[in-house]
Simulated scan of single mutants.
Amino acid sequence: MSVPPSQWATNVFGDQAAAVRLGVGQGLRNMQANAQAAQEQGAARTTRAYGTSRYENQYERLQDELKDLPGARAVQPFGFPYELMLIGNGLLYPFRYAKTKSDVRSAHIPNETRLVKELFTFAPTPKHTQDPFDLDFGAAVTVAEPRGALATIPPDTQLILVPFACNASELLEAYWGIAALGVNRQLEWTTDPEALHLPQAVTSYTSRPIIIPGQITAHTSFADGTEPTLTLSSRTASDRALHLPAQTEAEPVEDQTSEDDATH
């Protein structure tokens, strides 16, 4: 028997609260499967392939599971390469808070970036921001105003956090709820963080299947290789009249890309 959604979830997502909760759990399961597949294909000593794939998939696989719900909308924050899902009055923000099982009530946001500050303008006000006897007169406290698509969503939107714990071996646990951003990135939960059901079945690995072309296994010597095709063109009459030397090959084209352009 399924557990009904919490009252806060019903207030935020309405009649779709159960469907959103189910979709978030399934999206995280697909995220883990995709990231583990990337790690296995890379056959690397480090887990960098897993980490890169997991970070991308924590947004994209949730979007796959939620985009067809009535009223669902993908929102892309300014300068951010991925989209967050807005459903009803809830803006979902998934992030990994630990690599092992840990008390989510003591979780911290990994990094207090400009994006995080903009997102938390849709969260409750923290109870404590700075000790009154620890004032910093050197810099004024500024509020990060939402930019880009975040500036277009209703002001009564609520940020719904989706913290999860995982590593390259397994997806351990996941929660969702509402919290303020306190001192030192500490989360101040205004709702009890609710554990999400993480199904065992995987509904999708990736929308871009990897196809490896067939490889030639027979040994071929240089002399037995296919003779290259040469493209010949005659010189114009004006070139011959001016006694210009024949051009034997095209001018080299400067490469405009490098390995540094790739995401590692």
Rank of each mutant, 00 (worst) to 15 (best):
A35D: 06
R96S: 13
E65K: 13
L86S: 02
E173Y: 10
A107G: 06
G79T: 07
D261R: 11
S106N: 14
Y59G: 01
G90F: 01
V24E: 00
K67G: 00
N111I: 06
G25P: 03
P5A: 13
S53D: 06
H197S: 14
L86C: 01
P163I: 05
E227H: 05
L66K: 05
E118T: 03
S102M: 12
I87M: 05
P124Y: 06
Q39I: 03
G88Y: 06
S233K: 08
L86V: 01
L119N: 11
A139C: 04
P213C: 07
N89L: 09
E170F: 08
T248Y: 08
V104F: 07
L135N: 10
F13R: 00
E173C: 09
T100Y: 15
T47C: 07
P209F: 10
A49V: 08
A180R: 05
Q16S: 11
I109R: 07
H108I: 05
T231A: 13
T248M: 07
Q58K: 11
Q256E: 10
L62S: 05
R114L: 13
A241N: 05
T113Q: 12
N111Q: 15
F122T: 03
E173N: 10
T206I: 08
W8H: 12
Q215K: 14
E56L: 08
T157F: 09
S238I: 04
E145C: 00
A44S: 13
A35L: 08
A218K: 15
N30W: 01
T113R: 09
L181W: 05
G25H: 07
D192W: 02
V183K: 12
A180P: 10
E254Y: 13
T129Q: 14
T152S: 14
N11R: 15
T236A: 09
S207R: 15
E227S: 10
A201N: 12
Q41Y: 08
D68Y: 00
W8N: 04
V24W: 02
D131M: 04
E118I: 01
A144K: 14
G214I: 04
L119G: 08
Q130E: 14
P70Q: 04
T190E: 14
V202H: 07
L244Q: 11
W189E: 05
P209I: 07
R73I: 00
L196A: 10
G225E: 13
G90I: 03
L84T: 02
E251S: 15
A43I: 03
R45A: 05
I216K: 14
A140L: 12
F137I: 11
A35R: 12
Q158W: 01
